[in-house]
């Protein structure tokens, strides 16, 4: 790119950059500022991370749910992504619609749909009871299981798409060659395809985990009120009890944790490739 090209490039980027600075980084700096000044200047809010039992428990709940969501999403998403890469082009188009369609349905609507399916007198329990498979309704919702089910559903496209993109870059000739040299179908997959698809798996995993950390609506609606995750905890601090120092401290901690995860990810794999910037 020549000198003139770079200048026009900067001009094109400038409006978005200025907007981001004004409407994203300035408020973010304010959040950081409040977290070290309220109620007193210093790091007392950050000390709560170590000293407050309720914050510790809430962070543990958040981590547990996000890890579970990420594992299940990756497992299910990997299968779909694998099937997508093997499908004929016309079938792949249909499958892509299936993957993308839920993205356009609001999180709220999807949560209510899960309620209809999972609740005590919901479709699944009614069907299982009627078939005699169970005697008592299963506790599928109003607990962490319900939250994970709802979150996995929302996260799946975010796992499938990057994995599918990455898998399509794997040369099919490689597994064919492995088969040709005597590997079983599973052996070829396990020893050739899986290692090659690991960067996509890892990238999708970090992406899903980061998105999961910020979930608010799904845990509130499907958790029965007992599943307190970080986003809701922050909201209570800011909106209800006006402990902005604690709320902004947690928000800052969350952002730092996400940056740390992204930094780790970028050392392991090529982020630009994963997110389609290349």
């Amino acid at each position: 790119m020549g000198g003139g090209g770079r200048a026009s490039f900067l001009l094109l980027v400038a409006p978005a950059l200025l907007l981001t600075l004004a409407f994203y980084f300035v408020p973010l700096a304010q959040v950081l500022w409040i977290s070290v000044t309220e109620p007193n200047p210093g790091l007392e809010n950050y000390a709560l991370l170590a000293t407050s039992a309720s914050i510790g428990r809430m962070l543990l709940t958040t981590a547990r749910i996000c890890v579970a969501t990420t594992m299940v999403t990756l497992l299910l998403g990997y299968c779909v992504a694998f099937a997508l890469t093997r499908a004929t082009p016309s079938l792949r188009r249909v499958m892509m619609i299936g993957v993308l369609l839920p993205l356009w349905v609001s999180v709220l609507v999807r949560s209510f749909a899960w309620m209809t399916l999972l609740r005590r007198e919901g479709l699944i329990n009614d069907a299982l009871l009627a078939s005699g498979l169970i005697q008592q309704p299963l506790a599928l919702i109003w607990n962490e299981l319900g939250v994970v089910i709802g979150m996995v559903h929302i996260m799946l496209p975010y796992a499938i798409l990057p994995m599918a993109v990455q898998m399509r870059q794997i040369d099919p000739a490689l597994t064919a060659a492995a088969r040709g040299m005597g590997a079983s179908g599973f052996g070829a997959f396990y020893r050739v395809f899986l290692p090659l698809s690991l960067p996509g798996l890892l990238g999708a995993g970090v992406l899903v985990f980061i998105f999961s950390l910020g979930f608010y609506v799904t845990p509130v609606l499907l958790g029965g009120g007992r599943t307190l995750m970080i986003a809701e905890y922050i909201s209570i601090q800011i909106v209800e009890v006006l402990r902005w120092g604690t709320g902004t401290m947690l928000a800052t901690t969350l952002i730092l944790a996400i940056f740390a995860l992204l930094a780790m990810l970028s050392r392991a794999i090529d982020l630009r490739g994963l997110f389609g910037a290349k």
């Binding site: 309720s54 428990r57 007992r226 209570i236 209800e240 009890v241």
Partner: peptide, 15 residues
């Protein structure tokens, strides 16, 4: 005592 009570309440229900 309002905000302390809310915190204690949330602690009990979420633990």
């Amino acid at each position: 005592h309002g905000s302390e009570a809310l915190k204690a309440f949330l602690d009990v229900i979420s633990s």
